[in-house]
């Protein structure tokens, strides 16, 4: 074969392509459907992990503790008002009560073990923001954004799940219009708190009073 025809052949599809042609046509027809499905999936709650409810090492029920017993959120998550993290309580906090209450329960075996060995209980993270997001609990809680606004009715959850999408659009939604989610700081942990009258108008009043100006700057969360 001459050099010229060899070069020419480079630009010809090989013969086996003829057999593949129908499949390519089908593929091209399906491509838009795939694209739509892909985008739908990317923004679906499955992807944003809403309703994510992993199994925890201890069958701890918020519905029982925070709901029925009415223990304030801050009894356990005590750093929420001054720390970035609403820290998961140390085993010590569980044992404050469970040293005497249900001290021999099978379900609490992991807790007692941790208390004795000093090794942590490996809780599974439910609300997981990307690592390039820097969320600060204290900044929100001290302005009057209640726990429920982001975490939902924890007091009704036997096993905690992610209520909201926790996507950037969702965050910005509140940063742009915080009024419906602002309440008196004294009631932040109150799961049943309802604004007297119109929530947005009530929140707006509080926002004025406390001069709350949620920022939309990138560096507020990303640094």
């Amino acid at each position: 074969m001459s050099l010229k025809s060899k070069q020419h052949n480079l630009f010809l599809f090989p013969r086996w392509m003829n057999a593949v042609r129908p499949y390519i046509a089908v593929g091209m027809l399906l491509a838009p459907i795939y694209a739509v499905a892909l985008i739908y999936y990317a923004f679906s709650p499955t992807t944003t992990m809403a309703r994510y409810m992993p199994e925890q090492p201890v069958p701890y029920s918020h519905a029982l503790h925070a709901g029925d017993l009415g223990i304030d959120c801050r009894y356990c998550h005590n750093t929420v008002e001054y720390g970035a993290a609403a820290a998961i309580p140390p085993t010590q906090v569980c044992m404050n009560c469970h040293a005497t209450i249900r001290a021999t329960s099978e379900k609490l075996a992991v807790v007692r073990e941790s208390f004795e060995s000093g090794m942590p209980i490996p809780w599974v993270r439910v609300h997981d923001l990307p690592d390039f997001v820097f969320f600060n609990h204290s900044a929100h809680v001290n302005r009057g954004v209640g726990c429920r606004s982001c975490h939902g009715r924890i007091d009704r959850m036997d096993t905690v799940y992610q209520e909201e999408r926790l996507s950037m659009g969702w965050c910005l939604g509140c940063h742009r219009d915080p009024d419906p989610n602002i309440r008196p700081v004294a009631s932040i942990t109150d799961m049943t708190w309802e604004a007297p009258g119109d929530a947005a108008r009530f929140g707006a009043k509080l926002r004025e009073e406390k001069q709350i100006q949620p920022s939309e700057d990138c560096s507020v969360c990303h640094r």
Binding site: A85, A87, G118, P122
Partner: peptide, 21 residues
Amino acid sequence: CRWPKEEIVPYAHRPEGAVPG
């Protein structure tokens, strides 16, 4: 799309005054 399962390991006995993070 699936994020890795992440664990939170709190202190068993948190030192006084320590704020995680």
